[in-house]
C-alpha cells in the first residue's frame, strides 16, 4: 500500500500534468458548448480559433453566445477556481490547518464587505472601472485575515483548527449582516446580497478575465516560489523557524498574496465557498502534501471543479440560473464534515 502510493507520487510529474491539462481543456470546451442553447463542438472550436487569429467568423447567434457570453464566463470561472484553490492550499499549509480557506475563515466575506463599501461610496481608481472595488476588497480581505488570526491567537496560542473556524464563521455572519445593511441603504449602486454571499459569474467580461489572469500569474507565481516554505509551515511553524525560515516575513508575504487573490476573485464573482477548502484535499490525495506538486495539482482541480459547478448552476434548473455557491456549498459542506471528522479522529 505504501509502495503503491509512492509510485503514484513519483510518476506524477509529467504524465499527470498532461492529463490534468487535457481534462481542464475538455471541461472548458464542454462548458462552452452546453447551456440553454446547445452549440456543437466543431462550431465552438472554429469560432474561437478564427477569432483568436482574426480570421473572418460568420455572423450567427452561436458566435454571439460563444464570444460574448460563454467564453469570457468560462475563462473567469477557470481562473477564479484555480485562484481560490491555490489560496486554500496556501492557507492550509501556512496555518497547518486542513480546514482553512477563504470562506471558512471569513476572508472572503471581508473582501465582499470591502467591495460593497467601495460600490456604495462610489470609490473608483482612474483607468479601471474595477480598480477601486478590487483594491478595497483586497485591503478588507487582508484586514479580516489579520483580525481573525489575532482573535484566534488571543483565544488559544496554538491557533488550533476549531478556534479559527469558529471565529471565521461568527465573523462571516457578522459581515453578512453589515453587507445587507449597506445594500439596503445604497440599493442602486451595489449588487444583490445573494451575489455577495453565494457568488455568480453571470455577465462577466474579458476585462475581468484579464484582471483575474494577471492576479493569478503574479500571486500564483509568488506562492509557487514559496513552496519550500509552505512545506516547512505545514510540518510546523516552530520547525520552520528551526530550519531557517524567516517565519514572520514569509507569513506576511503569503497572507498578503492570498488576500490579493481572494480580493480580486470576490470583487468579480462574489464569495464562492468551499472551493479552496475541498480541492486542496482532493489534490493532496492525488499527489501528496508536498507543495511543489500540490499547488499545481490544486490549481487544475480547482479550475475543473468550479467549471463543473458553474455548468450545473446554470443548466440544472434552466432557464433559471442558480447561484454558483449553492452548488459548491452543497458539495463543500458534506466534504467539510468528512474532513473535520477525520482530523478529529486522527488526533
Amino acid at each position: 500500500m505504501r509502495d503503491l502510493r509512492q509510485l503514484r507520487r513519483e510518476k506524477f510529474a509529467p504524465l499527470t500534468y498532461l492529463l490534468l491539462t487535457f481534462a481542464l481543456f475538455l471541461t472548458m470546451i464542454l462548458c462552452i458548448c452546453v447551456g440553454s442553447v446547445s452549440i456543437s463542438v466543431s462550431d465552438t472550436l472554429t469560432t474561437i480559433w478564427n477569432s483568436v487569429w482574426k480570421l473572418p467568423v460568420p455572423e450567427s447567434i452561436a458566435k454571439n453566445i460563444i464570444l460574448n457570453v460563454r467564453l469570457p464566463r468560462v475563462l473567469c470561472v477557470t481562473l477564479a477556481g484555480a485562484a481560490l484553490s491555490l489560496c486554500g492550499t496556501a492557507m492550509q499549509g501556512l496555518l497547518r490547518n486542513p480546514l482553512a480557506d477563504g470562506s471558512t475563515m471569513g476572508v472572503s466575506s471581508g473582501a465582499a464587505l470591502g467591495a460593497v463599501t467601495a460600490m456604495a461610496t462610489g470609490f473608483t481608481l482612474p483607468g479601471s472601472s474595477y480598480g477601486g472595488i478590487m483594491i478595497t476588497a483586497m485591503a478588507f480581505a487582508f484586514g479580516s485575515l489579520i483580525l481573525i488570526l489575532s482573535l484566534a491567537y488571543a483565544l488559544d496560542r496554538s491557533l488550533s483548527t476549531s478556534s479559527i473556524i469558529l471565529i471565521g464563521v461568527i465573523f462571516t455572519m457578522f459581515i453578512s449582516s453589515i453587507i445587507s445593511l449597506i445594500i439596503t441603504f445604497a440599493s442602486d449602486h451595489t449588487r444583490s446580497l445573494s451575489f455577495w454571499t453565494l457568488g455568480s459569474f453571470s455577465g462577466v467580461n474579458y476585462e475581468q478575465a484579464a484582471l483575474l489572469l494577471l492576479a493569478l500569474v503574479l500571486c500564483g507565481g509568488i506562492l509557487f516560489r514559496f513552496s519550500p516554505e509552505l512545506n516547512a509551515f505545514a510540518i510546523g511553524e516552530d520547525n520552520a523557524r528551526h530550519v531557517g525560515v524567516n517565519v514572520k516575513r514569509v507569513k506576511l508575504i503569503i497572507l498578503i498574496t492570498v488576500s490579493v487573490l481572494i480580493g480580486v476573485c470576490v470583487s468579480i464573482s462574489g464569495t464562492i465557498s468551499f472551493v479552496g477548502l475541498v480541492m486542496p484535499h482532493i489534490a493532496r490525495m492525488l499527489v501528496g502534501p508536498n507543495h511543489k506538486r500540490l499547488l499545481p495539482a490544486s490549481l487544475f482541480s480547482g479550475a475543473i471543479f468550479l467549471l463543473l459547478a458553474d455548468l450545473i448552476s446554470r443548466t440544472i434548473l434552466s432557464p433559471i440560473e442558480l447561484s454558483i455557491g449553492v452548488i459548491t456549498s452543497l458539495v463543500g459542506a458534506v466534504a467539510f464534515v468528512i474532513i473535520f471528522y477525520q482530523t478529529r479522529k486522527a488526533r
Binding site: P98, P228, A232, I235, G244, G288, N290, T343
Partner: peptide, 15 residues
C-alpha cells in the same frame, strides 16, 4: 498533520 514522507521532512533540514 499531513502525510509528508520521512525523506521530505529530513530534506527540509537543508532549507
Amino acid at each position: 498533520g499531513y502525510a509528508y514522507t520521512v525523506e521530505e521532512v529530513v530534506g527540509l533540514g537543508r532549507y
